[in-house]
């Protein structure tokens, strides 16, 4: 395959972008683990990293994570296959339910974090 193969078609390009986003994502998660470690001794000695650069980096990583999540959850429509009364459920419905479940999970996690952190 020629070196620039992934620039030739938009599908290839977005595929490579998707694969590439896992690198910054991994870096950010490593950093996150480090932060948790630092927060072990309680709130008094903990000062979260809040430089502008890090915030921008986090926002970009958040976008990457969303891109990953959306492609992954959209995939569910292609993979999952249920029949109700001998008729397959339309894949859009399956995808929709995935996004609904995602939103619900986010609400629950958000609630737990905010409620118990008070």
């Amino acid at each position: 395959m020629p070196r620039g193969w992934w620039t030739r078609r938009s599908n290839y390009f977005w595929y490579i972008v998707r694969e590439f986003t896992s690198l910054p994502l991994a870096l950010w998660l490593l950093w996150f683990l480090l932060e948790i470690r630092r927060a072990q001794d309680g709130p008094s000695g903990y000062h979260p990293h809040s430089s502008l650069g890090f915030v921008i980096f986090s926002v970009i990583v958040l976008l990457f994570a969303l891109y990953h999540s959306v492609t992954f959850l959209s995939l569910a429509g292609a993979i999952l296959h249920f029949n109700v009364a001998d008729r397959p459920i339309p894949s859009q419905l399956i995808v929709l339910s995935q996004f609904a479940a995602w939103a619900a999970a986010s609400v629950v996690v958000g609630f737990v974090l905010i409620y118990f952190a008070r």
Binding site: R9, N11, Y12, Y15, E19, T71, L75, A78, I79, L80, H81
Partner: peptide, 26 residues
């Protein structure tokens, strides 16, 4: 397969091999 999805785009007969692959993963 890392799900590029281009196989299903170019198929002239409307087959969705990418779907077959992901379902088989399951």
């Amino acid at each position: 397969c890392s799900f590029v999805g281009e196989c299903s785009v170019v198929c002239p007969k409307g087959v969705d091999p990418a779907k077959a692959i992901q379902q088989t993963k399951l």
